[in-house]
Design a protein around this nucleic acid. Structure first.
Length: 420
RNA sequence: GUGGAUGUAGUUCAGCUGGUUAGAGCGCCAGGUUGUGGCCCUGGAGGUCGUGGGUUCAAGUCCCACCAUUCACCCCA
């Protein structure tokens, strides 16, 4: 009976991990430059956290969560997004009592029960950041800047920044009313899902891709016209800061995001490249979330970035991630006595910071060379009974093909000078 | 959740309108003189043709179901 990986999951095999490590190293570099510290939270949380945080009316909570009961009858859910858990930790450990803002980042698997397709998995991985404790639009701009700096540094081209403001507790209800008023006598032209969204979350209708709905929406009231003075000022400064950083962006009043916790700023970074999976980064501000989850009234802002999509995007743009080097040295031993000696030599050389490979399946000398070649070893040392007796070995440079005699007793020093 | 496509060796695929021991490239292993790789040549290992039913004298090839993969929609990273 063959067991395979569950639907929508993927193994990252050794011949590919280096790509992940490469991207992760860029992430660590840029988060450090911006002063974001890593936080690691559990892969699962109490289901209630996501219901309260992400929002009961969202698709994510309604139909995409991996929820189960544990042996203590607790309802547990695998993270369907990264923010809620970080917010919970921020509250639980009273990080709000420290100097603000608290700037955090995470790398985490994310689980959503969906039908897999290109750029969409049931388990995917996100790099995300969260900045708590500041209402200032400079934070909003900073997180976009961090995302873009990273993406640009990785070599990505043709990126677009789409931004919007969806208001706050004060002004959003006013817009809701206006939108609902506009849609009231056009309900019959909307699709089924949008009709059901009308009462619960009318904002989401703006996001609908149905042609009929889009047609209805062309003359719908624009949220930007309904922002209160504070939100308007916030949005303006945010844009000014983005410009000051040298970014081009597009105000897209139809971005509303699928998570209920956003207030004011929402944004997406997407690739316009045909073969790319669209949005690779999405985020925004969530000024009420901490309070909603049982903490003090503290603002926040952040984003999530899909690593699989990022990798996909880099791949489709032809960005080559440098493959790791092979071992410094391969020791090819001939005969049992020489092999015995070579095992000890390999152990010693590794302790001297030289990466060494040696045969473990009893290959012939020729086989060992072929294997060394496959491993991309830089040098091959041949040791047989002659070498054991004379105390000299031959060291072959695998890229030039040249042999050179080396004395065994200070071999580590000689190798070090060869390796640079 | 809705709709389409696909499922043959480790891998990429071929296998014509159903007909005898299922093929190729790459990869893997071994040889091409006695202790030397990358190229070339030769040979070898490796498949219950996704699974289970059905039609037929006969099925990898036709039909059905299931499973899986993949693409689009929905949603999102």
């Amino acid at each position: 009976m063959a067991i395979n990986a569950p639907r929508g999951t993927k193994d990252v095999l050794p011949d590919e991990v280096y790509k992940w490590q490469y991207v992760e190293s860029f992430i660590r570099r840029w988060t450090a430059l911006f002063g974001y510290k890593e936080i690691r939270t559990p892969v699962f949380e109490h289901t209630e956290l996501f219901q309260r945080g992400v929002g009961d009316t969202t698709d994510i909570v309604q139909k995409e969560m991996y929820t189960f009961e544990d042996k203590g009858n607790r309802s547990i859910t695998l993270k369907p997004e990264g923010t809620a858990g970080v917010v919970r930790a921020y509250i639980e450990h009273k990080l709000y009592a420290e100097a603000q803002p608290i700037k955090l980042y995470y790398l985490s698997p994310i689980f959503r029960y969906e039908r897999p397709q290109a750029g969409r998995l049931r388990e995917h991985h996100q790099f995300g950041i969260e900045a708590f404790g500041s209402y200032a639009p400079s934070i909003d701009a900073e997180i976009v800047d961090l995302a873009m700096s990273l993406l640009n540094d990785l070599g990505l081209k043709d990126l677009e920044i789409h931004i919007n403001s969806i208001g706050c507790k004060k002004c959003r209800p006013v817009y809701h009313k206006a939108l609902m008023g506009y849609l009231a006598d056009r309900l019959d032209q909307l699709c089924d899902t949008c009709r059901s969204r009308y009462d619960k979350n009318p904002l989401r209708i703006l996001d609908c891709k149905e042609k009929s709905c889009q047609a209805v929406l062309t003359d719908a009231p624009d949220i930007v016209d309904y922002l209160c003075d504070d939100c308007k000022k916030h949005f303006d400064s945010f844009q000014n800061y983005l410009s000051a950083m040298g970014y081009k962006y597009e105000v897209d009043s139809r971005i509303v995001r699928g998570l209920d916790y956003y207030t004011r700023t929402v944004f997406e970074i997407l690739s316009t490249d045909e073969r790319s999976p669209g949005t690779i980064c999405g985020g925004g501000r969530y000024d009420d979330l901490v309070e909603q989850c049982g903490g003090p009234s503290m603002p926040g802002a952040g984003f999530g970035m899909g690593l699989e999509r990022l990798l996909m995007c880099m791949d489709s743009q032809g960005i080559v991630i440098p493959a790791p080097k092979g071992p410094d040295l391969f020791i090819a031993a001939v005969g049992e006595q020489a092999y015995n000696y070579s095992i000890g030599l390999a152990s010693m050389l590794r302790k001297r910071d030289i990466s060494v490979e040696i045969d473990h399946v009893a290959r012939s000398l020729k086989g060992q060379f072929k294997y060394a070649d496959k491993l991309k070893a830089q040098y091959v040392l041949v040791i047989g009974s002659d070498e054991m007796a004379s105390g000299y070995v031959s060291c072959k440079n695998m890229s030039t093909g040249q042999d050179q005699r080396m004395k065994l007793d200070n071999i580590a020093e000689q190798l070090h000078s060869l390796l640079h």
